[in-house]
């Protein structure tokens, strides 16, 4: 699944980023790395989110969230 589908109050684990190179590096510098946990605090529209990542809140647009592959935190089968 992609982060754009994330639901408020749920936590997700980052799998892969499919974004332009520089943006990917910037997100990684903020801690959006493989295996990082992301909590969804708010969402609107098709997937504009407020997330909590490594203790800080970020607003992410749909063009970013639709390109971040995640899995539900605690789901070990995937």
């Amino acid at each position: 699944m992609f982060l754009k589908d994330g639901q408020i109050g749920r936590a997700y684990v980052v799998e892969v980023l499919h974004l332009p190179f520089e943006l990917e590096r910037r997100l990684e510098a903020l801690g959006m790395t493989h295996g990082a946990t992301v909590s969804v605090l708010n969402r609107k529209g098709k997937g504009i989110l407020i997330i909590k990542l490594r203790g800080s809140r970020f607003a992410l647009g749909y063009n970013i969230t639709r390109n971040i592959e995640v899995k539900e935190a605690g789901d070990e089968r995937e």
Binding site: L19, L27, I48, S56, R57, F58, A59, G61, N63, I64
Partner: peptide
Amino acid sequence: SVNYLMIELPE
């Protein structure tokens, strides 16, 4: 251009 919103929300 495709726009990417990414901004930290301070407390």
